[in-house]
Amino acid sequence: MLEARLEQANLLKKVVDAIKDLVQDCNFDCNDSGIALQAMDNSHVALVSMMLKSESFSPFRCDRNIALGINLTSLTKVLRAAQNEDILTLKAEDAPDVVNLVFESAESDRISEYDIKLMDIDQEHLGIPETEYAATISMPSAEFQRICRDLMALSESVSIECSKEGVKFACQGDIGSGSVTLRSHTNVDKPEMNVEIDLTEPVSLTFSLKYLVGFCKASSLSGQVKLCLSNEVPLLVEYALANNSYLRFYLAPKIGD
C-alpha cells in the first residue's frame, strides 16, 4: 500500500496547477523511491516529467509499484478543498480503485477526507536519453516568465540564442520585433537573482511561446529555473524542488524558416 504524507498541501497544489492545462489524465507511478509522473500533451509537442522523491514526504511508505491513474481536473477539484498549509496524506491500496486524500489543519482539529476514483490509463512511456547539453542557463523563474509573456504579445515563437555574449530571447511578429538579452550575473545578497550561463558551444533554437508560458505556471515552485539547450534537440525546462524532487518540461523545437 501507499501512504505518503506531505508537510504542506501547497506543493501538490502548485505542481498540479502547473501541469493540468498541458496534460489531462496521467498515471502517478508510486514506488519506494517516490512518486513520478510522465505525460505528453495531446499534440506530442511537450512532455512533463515530475519526480517527488520519497524524502519529500514524511513518512513515505510504498511496498510495491502502484500506478494511480488520475484525471487532473478531478484532482484539482479535490485539492481546492485543501488549505495551502494543511498536512496532506495520500493513501492507496495495492490494487486500488480510489486514491484517498486526507487534509489536516495544523492549527485546528479539522480533518477532511476525499476519495478520487482512479482510471485505467494506458500511457505511452518515453525514454528520454541522457543529454550533454551545449548550453545550460539558470535564471530567476520570474524573469523567464516575464520574458515569455512579454514576447508572446508580439509573436507565437521565440528564438533562444546562447553565445559567449549571453542568452538572447528574440521574436518577430506582425507589429514588429523584440528581444531580451541576459548576461551572467551574480547577486551575493540574493542568489535566487543569479543568472548563470554554462556554454560549451553556441546554440540557437526556436520554440512556441504558448508552451513556454504554460510551463511558467510552475514559477511559484522555485525561485530559479534551468533551461538546457542543444541544437536540434528538445529544450529542457527544470524547476528544482527540495529533496532532489523536480518538475521538468521538455519542448520540441520548431525548424525551418
Binding site: V45, L47, H125, A252, K254, D257
Partner: peptide, 14 residues
C-alpha cells in the same frame, strides 16, 4: 514556414 516538431522524433517509446 516554421514546422513544429514532435517529441516522438527525439524520444524513443519504451
Amino acid at each position: 514556414h516554421q514546422v513544429q516538431q514532435t517529441l516522438d522524433t527525439f524520444f524513443c517509446s519504451r
